[in-house]
Nucleic acid binder design. Structure first.
Lengths: 347, 347
DNA sequence: GTAGGCATGCAATTCGATTTGCACAATTCG
DNA sequence: CGAATTGTGCAAATCGAATTGCATGCCTAC
C-alpha cells in the first residue's frame, strides 16, 4: 500500500519494525507517506504471518445453556466480561466474546484468538479438548471437575465459600439447612454439592438437595418451595434455611415462600452463592456471596497473557476470596433489620 | 493439513464449501479424516482470503475517557455489551471489545473486524474518520453531533427523553429545575443540554447547568451540591429539582444533599438519565430513565450485520424509547412512597 | 588497487485456505 | 467412431505483511 506511494515494497515493513537498518531519509519518507494516507498494516495478514492476533477469546460456558439471554440474571458474567475487556486492553489485546466453538454452526472466528478463557467448564468439557487439539492455549476459571490440570486455571474457592455460607446460615439460626443448585455438571455445582454433603456429614445430618435446570431461571424457586414445603410426607425434613447457589433461584424462592405465607427471614433463611441484582433490590434483600468477578477476570486475563507470551512471572492461580454480603434474608436480629429498612426521611 | 492425511490438496476445500462437485467417495474420506484429526480451517487464513472474519467490533467510547474501570457505575455499557455479544452470536459473529484504535498503542486487532459499532461518538470523532479511511463499515449508537450522517446510526432518543424527565420533575413539584451533565463532547451531553435549554426557554426560565468531567464519578455529586446550595450569592437561583444525566452523578448528589440536611425528595427532587445500579439500591431509590440497552444493542448488531452483508431489509434506525422508572427521589406523595417502602413482613 | 565490511534496497518465500484455470478421464450423442 | 459433454482432481495464483537471501554501491584498510 505505502509501497505505491513511496518507492519501496518491503522497506515499509523494515521502516516500521526496524529489524534492519534503513536510511534516515527513506525512513522519514515512509513515515510521512504512511501518515498522509493513513496507512495501517492489515491485522489479518499480519496475524496469519505472525501467528498472533492480539486477541483473547472468552467463552462464557453457562450462557450456552441459557436459551435466551436474561440480562437481569447474569450479573456475574457481565461484570466478569467487562473487567476482562478492560484488562485485556491494558495488555494490548482485544477481548472477543465467542460462542461454544464445538457447536455445529459456530463461526470460525471462535478459534481466531491467541488464547482462550473458559469460565465454568463442564465435566470433561469438549471445548477444552477442542482447544487442545487446535493448539490454542487455554485456561479455565473454575477447574474441569473430571480433569483438573488439563489446562491451567483460576481456581474458584467454591469449597471454602460454601462452608462460609453454610456456617453463616447456621449461626443465623438455621438448624435444617438445604441446598438448591443447578443441573449443569460444572465445577460450580459439583464442588458446592460435595462441600455441602461433607458439611452435613460432619454434623450428622442428612443432606437436603434441590436440583433444577439452570434454564428454568427464577421459576425454579417455585419448584424448590413446592418440594420443600408442600409435601406432607416430608414434614420432618422441612428446612428452615436454604442455600441457593444462584441469585435467581434465591429471589424466586423468596417469592414462592412468601406466597405460601412463609416469612423470610423469620421462618426461612435464604442465602445466595452469587450476588445478583435481585438480591440487592428485592424485598427482603438477600444475603449473598459476592464472588468479585472483576478481580477474578483481571487475574484470568493476566494468566492468559502469560500463557501466550510465555513469561515466567508468578501469578495467582486462584480467584480472590468471595465476600459474604449479609442482608435482610438472614438477619433475624430485629434491631439490625429495622435499621436497614429505614426510609429516606431519616437524616 | 487434511491433504497430508487424505490424498488431495485443495479437494478438501471443495469437500467443505461445495463450490464444485466432488465424488461421493472422496468427499466421505475427506470428512472422515477431518473428523478423526479434528481439522478446523484456520480462521485467520480464511479471513485474509475471504476478507471476512465474522467479527463485529464494539468501541465503547465513553470508557476511553474513564481512567480506571468502575464497574458499579457503567451499568449501561455492560448490559449493552452483553446483549450485543449474544445477538452477534445469533447471527454467526463474535463480538470483539476493542479500545480506541486511534490511540498510539492500540493493538492491530482493533481493526481486524468486519464492521464496527461505536457507542456515543464524540464530536467529529476521529475513530469514525479512521474507520472510513480503512474502509471498515461502521455505525454509531447516538449520532456524531458535528457530522450527522457520516455513518449510519442508531439514534438515541435523547431529546424526547430529556423532555420527558424534565416534565416529570415539573409535575412532581419542581419549579426551579437544574441540569447536571458531563463535559465529554458527545451526542448524549450535547443533545440533552440543547433540549434542556429549549425546555427552559419555552417556560421563560433561565437554565441552570452544572458541568463535571465524567472521570470525576460520584464525587461530582459533591461539586454539584456545592455549586447549587453553598453559594449565598445565588440563593434566588437555588434549584428544587436536578436532572443528572448519569446515574453516578445522581447518587453522588443525593448523598451530598443529605449531608447538607437537604432532604430528597422533600426539599430536592433528583432524577437520572441512565438507570444504574445505585439508583435502584440507594436510599432513597432514584427515579431514572431506563434506556433499555439490551434492545438498543440488538438493533445495533442487526444493523451492523446488514451493513456488512449488504442485505436490504428495512431496519429500525433509532433506539427503543426509554422508560422512566419513577422511584422515591421524585415521589413526594406520602402514600405511594410509604407503600414502596413497606417491608417484607407484610404479606 | 583490491579485498573486506557495511549500508541499503529489492526479489522471492512464507503463513493456510480459497479459487481459477487446466488436464485427464468417462460418458453420451450424432 | 469421433466429438461434445460432464465429472473429477491437481497446479498455481491470491489475500497482505514479514522475513530471508542476494545484489549493489560506497567506504575503509592493508
Amino acid at each position: 500500500m505505502a509501497k505505491a506511494a513511496g518507492v519501496s515494497p518491503t522497506t515499509v515493513s523494515q521502516a516500521f519494525n526496524g529489524r534492519r537498518t534503513v536510511s534516515r531519509q527513506t525512513l522519514e519518507r515512509v513515515h510521512d507517506v504512511a501518515e498522509r494516507i493513513g496507512y495501517r498494516p492489515n491485522a489479518v495478514a499480519r496475524g496469519l504471518r505472525e501467528s498472533r492476533m492480539n486477541v483473547i477469546a472468552l467463552v462464557l460456558r453457562p450462557l450456552d445453556t441459557l436459551e435466551s439471554f436474561l440480562p437481569e440474571g447474569v450479573d456475574f458474567f457481565m461484570r466478569f466480561a467487562g473487567s476482562a475487556a478492560l484488562s485485556a486492553m491494558e495488555h494490548g489485546y482485544s477481548l472477543m466474546l465467542v460462542s461454544d466453538p464445538t457447536k455445529p454452526g459456530a463461526p470460525v472466528s471462535s478459534l481466531a484468538a491467541d488464547v482462550c478463557i473458559v469460565t465454568d467448564p463442564f465435566e470433561n468439557d469438549p471445548v477444552l479438548t477442542l482447544l487442545k487439539n487446535q493448539h490454542i492455549p487455554a485456561l479455565t476459571v473454575g477447574v474441569d471437575p473430571a480433569r483438573p490440570g488439563v489446562v491451567p486455571s483460576i481456581d474458584s474457592n467454591t469449597r471454602a465459600e460454601t462452608f462460609e455460607v453454610l456456617d453463616h446460615l447456621e449461626s443465623a439460626g438455621g438448624t435444617t439447612v438445604g441446598l438448591a443448585l443447578g443441573t449443569d455438571r460444572n465445577a460450580w455445582n459439583l464442588t458446592a454439592k460435595r462441600a455441602y454433603v461433607e458439611w452435613c456429614g460432619a454434623r450428622g445430618r442428612e443432606p437436603i438437595i434441590y436440583e433444577n435446570p439452570e434454564t428454568r431461571g427464577e421459576a425454579a424457586g417455585e419448584r424448590i418451595a413446592a418440594e420443600a414445603f408442600d409435601r406432607v410426607d416430608r414434614v420432618e425434613r422441612r428446612p428452615d434455611a436454604i442455600y441457593c447457589l444462584t441469585g435467581r433461584h434465591a429471589s424466586g424462592l423468596v417469592a414462592a415462600a412468601r406466597s405460601r405465607g412463609i416469612r423470610v427471614p423469620e421462618d426461612l433463611l435464604v442465602a445466595a452463592g452469587s450476588d445478583a441484582l435481585q438480591n440487592r433490590t428485592g424485598r427482603p434483600t438477600v444475603t449473598a456471596m459476592d464472588l468479585r468477578p472483576e478481580e477474578t477476570a483481571r487475574r484470568a486475563v493476566e494468566l492468559a497473557v502469560q500463557l501466550f507470551e510465555g513469561s515466567d512471572a508468578e501469578l495467582p492461580t486462584s480467584a480472590p476470596g468471595g465476600i459474604l454480603r449479609v442482608r435482610e434474608s438472614t438477619s433475624r436480629d430485629p434491631v439490625r433489620s429495622a435499621s436497614r429498612r429505614r426510609g429516606p426521611s431519616s437524616d
